[in-house]
Design a protein around this nucleic acid. Structure first.
Lengths: 189, 189
DNA sequence: ATAAGATACGGAGAGAGTCCCCGGTTTGCA
DNA sequence: TGCAAACCGGGGACTCTCTCCGTATCTTAT
């Protein structure tokens, strides 16, 4: 990532075009969008794509890194604006909406919270896990959330809610509704 | 499906071999198992496979039809043995376990409860929807389940629980745990 | 301004798969 | 025994991935 020399100008141009096109393609066709097609749409050869991003995962992660980081920032904003329990609920809502609006992100966030796949996704995984940990701990300290759930479990359940809403047609009202039911199950008892 | 003539003996033999091999292959490799490979493992030509099952969905559904029907029967068994609320919980547990143990079934059950994909999955969809409807209505009548959830929503949420447990490594304890949390959110209040 | 050297590009092509059709051959039933 | 039904498996038309190396482009030192 950190180059000893700065990137050549044309290399940087291509890198950024690829990122932009990839984000669109993954959003439209899901995680299995054709990589050759992404290269073509970006106006570069496929060799160039594979040089910059050796694996599909690398491209997927790079394409949505900014969005993921925005979620991290958003967690702290919400923590400042709302009571802890509501901040958590709202953040999970925004997470789930992102997951569904942008189809590639579902796979990305999914593999970020598996047991096994941790290796591949250091950056995105860390950001999201850090954000949810802060929100969960604050909510638990206030008694707005049962104490026996781990932050990562909350993430997995939110992913599950997104899956459920997806089956329902992925409307945002469904996300709110299902998340509300989950939230009910997670109250301190 | 209902032939005017009964199937020729060798045709029936091949049909059943294909079903058996397909169930194994989908369980092992997921919904995208290679169809050519299934044909090869069953010892038939690929043409034979495509004659019996014109689409991947058709094969998937046929391969798991018996399992799905067993779930339908199991719903009534449980309804006779346990109080309505517990019967529902236990049935959802068994559904989720099946969903995860047999990878192909996740896709099958998933598409059975979407808004759009109803057309392709008449039989499996009907069985599962019927079973859950009976259990949900019984539980609601007893006050063991909130009245404002539809049976199909319960199915979707159970699918979400299975997705969440899958991220955790698909252990059965996780399924129980996450289902317990969902159940908490669904109590009558 | 320019030339030399480092760097990155492009896109053909091999390899792996999938889906499906076809025409000669075999099999089973009456 | 005859013929309709079903089989087999090669092969075509696709799609996708990923590598290789001759060529084009940029950078830097002069």
């Amino acid at each position: 990532m950190t180059q000893s020399r700065p990137m050549r100008a044309d290399a940087r141009r291509n890198y950024e075009r690829l990122l932009k096109v990839a984000a669109e393609a993954f959003a439209e066709h899901g995680e299995n969008a054709s990589l050759d097609d992404i290269a073509k749409r970006a106006g570069v050869g496929s060799g160039t794509l594979y040089r910059h991003f050796p694996t599909r995962q690398a491209l997927l992660e790079a394409a949505y890194l900014d969005r993921i980081e925005a979620l991290g920032v958003r967690a702290d904003e919400l923590a400042g604006e709302l009571p802890p329990g509501e901040a958590l609920t709202e953040w999970l809502y925004e997470l789930a909406v992102g997951t569904l609006q942008v189809r590639g992100m579902k796979a990305l966030l999914g593999s970020a919270v598996t047991q096994s796949g941790a290796a591949a996704l250091t950056v995105c995984g860390d950001v999201v896990k850090g954000a949810v940990a802060r929100l969960v701990e604050a909510a638990q300290a206030e008694g707005a959330l049962r104490g026996d759930v781990a932050p990562i479990e909350v993430l997995r359940l939110a992913h599950g809610v997104a899956s459920a809403a997806e089956l329902a047609g992925a409307g945002e009202p469904e996300i709110r509704r299902y998340l509300g039911l989950l939230r009910e199950g997670l109250r301190a008892g």
